[in-house]
Structure formats: C-alpha cells, structure tokens
Amino acid sequence: MTAIDPTIAAAKSQRGWYKRNEIAVTPWLFLAPAILFFVFYVVWPIYQSIAISFYDWDGLGEARFVGMDNYAELMDDSAFEVSLWNNLKWLLFYLLAIPGGLFIALFLNQTVTGIRIYKSLFFFPFVLSQVVVGLVFSWFYLPNEGLLNTVLGVFGMGPINVLGDPTLATYGIIAAGLWPQTAYCMILYLTGLNAVDPEQIEAGRLDGAKGWRMLWFIIIPQLKPATFIAFVVTIIGALRSFDLISVMTNGGPFGQTRVLSFYMFEKALSEYGFRMGYGAAIAVVLFLIMLVFIAYFLWSMWSEERGR
C-alpha cells in the first residue's frame, strides 16, 4: 500500500517546466513588460547619449570620434557655465515652493464656509499648462504695459524690465515657476495634514505647546512623508525647467536664462543646432547631476523600508 502509484510519479515529472518553476518565474513575467520598456526607453537612450557624446556629429552625415573633446570644450564654454549656474539657482530657489506650500496648506486647513472653493482657487495654477503660466507671467512683467510695473509705479518705483535684464531674468522665470509648484506642494501638505494624529496635538497642548513650537515639534515631524514627496517633485521640477524658459525668454537675453536642458536642446535640436555630440555631452552632465539626487532618493526610500 505504500508503493507509489507509478502513474502519479510519471504525471509529476510530466508537469510542464512552467508548472514546476511557477513560483520563481511568475514575478518576472509580471515584471517583464516594465523591464522591457525601462530598458528600451530609459537605459538604452542613456547608453546612446553617452556614446554619442564622444562623437562630432551633425545628425545627418558621418559621425567622427573625438574622444573627450566635447567635454574639454564644455569646460571652456562660458554659455555652459551660465547654464550650470542657472540650474543651481533653479534648484535652490525652487525649493521655496515647499515652505510656501506648507504655509498656504496650514492657512487653508480650517473649516469655514466655502473653504473648498478657496482650496480649489489656490490649486488652480497647478492645473494650468506651463506654457500658459509662462505667457501670463511674461505679460505681467512687460516693461511698459505690465501689471508689475504699474504696481511698482504706485509706490513710486521705477519701471524694471525683468525678462530683459540678464541678471534678473532667471529669477523672474523661477518666480513664475513657483506659482504652480507652490500649489502642488500645498496639495501634498493638505493631504498630509488630514493624517495628522489629533491625539498627539491634544497631548502637545496639554504639555503647553503652542504656535511655532507646536508646528515645529508636533506637526512638521508628522508631515515628513509629505515633505519628502514635495522635495522630490520640486527637485525634479527644477531640473526639468524648460517650457517656461522657452516661452518667456527663449533662453535670452543673449543666452543668460538658459539652463542645461535648454542649452542641450539649442545645441542639438533647435533651428541652428547641428551638434548632436556636444548636446549629448551636456545631457550627460545633466544626467550626472540628476544621478546625485536619484541616489539620494533611492537611498532614503531604501532606509525607510528597512526601518520598518
């Protein structure tokens, strides 16, 4: 009676390869489409960009291998330097969207009649296309007819041409970018505030915490996940800044508002751009800068997971 039925044993070994390895294989099958797309649309282009950056190529004819020449030229290119600094300004000042968003979220996190309308009004700029935001702000900044100069005129201050002044123009564009970005951070914080534990606030209140101390020691620590996401999207937004620049100044006056992504576009793909290799080299530099942040994001997410 303990003898194994030969037919069962046979059936077991006859079960398909997939059946035998089901548990090991299935996750990979589910991952396969994502991996495939990631390899084709992300990893492969990164490799290609790096490869092209070693060539002198106009996008049409023969590519000529030039080694590190493109990078050597970048080191000596004042327009590249300007773009790099502008990228830094974007990274730094764009972060103002986070405290700005938090402030508005705290302000709106109350129950008065019609609060929903106020909330949606504050959220409104985020829904607008960046092109519209750019247009609205460039009208706002217009040297003669613009609202900004009319308002400044009321206070007796002289007209300023924000977008025509090489030192001010970048800040002008960042300010325009902050408008929708602040709204985005506000939404993140509003949802975060919903999840704040009322018992902890109660406990804090019993211990005599009020105002700033309440905010700093009780509320903000609980908003940490929202802050992290706000930080991530703001950094990404700063590095992706392109449309606003293109709409508001087209990189000008004389190239003083370019950032790396815009400069890359101009060198490689715009009307006069025929330098694929040089553009690719700029893209690689931008990628390396992004890599710093990507590494940081991955690391902090990973340590979060492990901490659980």
Binding site: G252, P253, F254, G255, E271, Y272
Partner: peptide, 17 residues
C-alpha cells in the same frame, strides 16, 4: 553657417543692449 550665425546673433543682441 548655422552655428556661427546663432552665436553671432546672440552677440549682436548683447551689443545692442
């Protein structure tokens, strides 16, 4: 040539300002 024109025209704009 396209590239020369592009850089030069930026220079011309800068000169005018």
């Amino acid at each position: 040539p396209a590239e020369m024109a592009n850089e030069a025209m930026q220079g011309l704009q800068e000169f005018m300002v």
